[in-house]
């Protein structure tokens, strides 16, 4: 998802027998759905895992501004431009809520950003794909934000209070993103044959990467099981992916465009859509840094950070001068 394959630092899921008394009390609180708050005792592995997960999530929001920012100056109308700016601004806000949640776990903002820039921490691979046409902005809102919402709604109930509260705010704002994306697709699909073809082309390119956003198939990761026990991952990758497919296929039917998957068909018996195999080699290759835009995205972030350094320093100097003047007066 926005946080992919988060390492929990454990080799196997901790059972009651492995746990210290403190850990057992901690797990009991989680099992009773009591939220864990910043100053509460927590196992070091829980704290570290959450820092990684929230941090990846925050970086994804911030890096996610880049592919869409690409189209702000080229939006087809002033209205679309204003809407896209509002959406991109929201993503920046979401990044900030999440950074703040991560900071409650005792890491500094500068450290989080340094980790991203040093390539120590990932962001969602989906943002390593380019936005080639205006229809991509529609497909991102509809599919990428749609997949994100699917993952984020359960996280509103996660065990860590500040993370859960950030997710509540984010989810409230996110449905605007999905609808504006669908609205772009809907408009294109009702337009000229060329415009509809553009929408189909965007769907062709974004469908599989969107399904990969949910992460590798279940049962491959001890980390998922531990995160589930800690209630920082509430539904499995495959469960969420299936929900997303079931929800999205009828929307594509309505638009009159088709998923690039010959195996996709309704399974009457299961009440779900069956879909074809996912090319996980592509996923792993993008994750390793070999997607179409990995280098470009990170370079853009580092450049923005470095170019903004003088502004941050000037603001601090100004604040110091003001407070010194106040004291002298």
């Amino acid at each position: 998802m926005y946080a992919q394959q988060v390492d929990t630092g454990v080799a196997k899921v901790r059972t009651a027998a492995d746990m210290t008394e403190e850990e057992r009390a901690f797990q009991a609180r989680i099992d009773a759905d009591v939220k864990i708050e910043p100053k509460d005792w927590m196992p070091e592995a829980y704290r570290r895992t959450l820092v990684r997960q929230i941090q990846q999530h925050a970086h994804s929001e911030i890096v996610g501004m880049l592919p869409e920012g690409n189209w702000i100056t080229r939006a087809p109308s002033l209205k679309r431009k204003a809407i896209l700016m509002a959406k991109v601004q929201d993503e920046g806000g979401h990044g900030l809520y999440l950074y703040a949640a991560a900071e409650t776990l005792g890491v500094s903002r500068d450290q989080l950003i340094a980790d991203l820039h040093a390539g120590k921490v990932k962001y969602s691979s989906i943002f390593n794909y380019p936005t080639l046409t205006w229809a991509d902005i529609g497909a991102i809102g509809w599919l990428v934000d749609g997949a994100a919402i699917m993952n984020q709604i359960p996280l509103c109930r996660c065990s860590y209070g500040p993370y859960a509260r950030a997710m509540v705010r984010i989810c409230k704002e996110e449905s605007f993103h999905q609808r504006q994306g669908f609205d772009i697709m809907h408009t294109l699909c009702r337009g000229t044959p060329e415009q509809k073809a553009m929408a189909q082309d965007a769907l062709n390119r974004w469908w599989w990467p969107s399904l990969m956003m949910f992460g590798p198939p279940d049962g491959e990761s001890v980390h998922s099981a531990q995160s589930a026990q800690w209630k920082i991952k509430l539904l499995s990758n495959d469960e969420l992916r299936q929900r997303f497919v079931d929800q999205t296929v009828p929307q594509a039917d309505f638009l009159g465009i088709t998923m690039p998957d010959p195996d996709l068909k309704w399974n009457e018996e299961l009440g779900h859509y069956d879909f074809g195999p996912i090319d996980w080699s592509e996923f792993h290759s993008v994750l390793k840094g070999n997607g179409p835009c990995n280098r470009e995205r990170l370079a853009a972030r580092v450049e923005a950070w470095d170019n903004g350094a003088w502004v941050r320093e000037a603001a601090v100097a100004h604040a110091k001068k003001q407070s010194a003047r106040k004291e002298a007066a």
Partner: peptide, 29 residues
């Protein structure tokens, strides 16, 4: 190091209601 201090933000949603904590952010002043 130029990391700005952390501030807690409280918002009053409409006249008559108390300010409520909504989150935090960094700012120089």
């Amino acid at each position: 190091s130029t990391e700005w201090p952390l501030w807690e933000i409280f918002i009053r949603s409409q006249h008559g209601l108390a300010h409520k904590h909504v989150g935090s952010l960094h700012a120089p002043d």
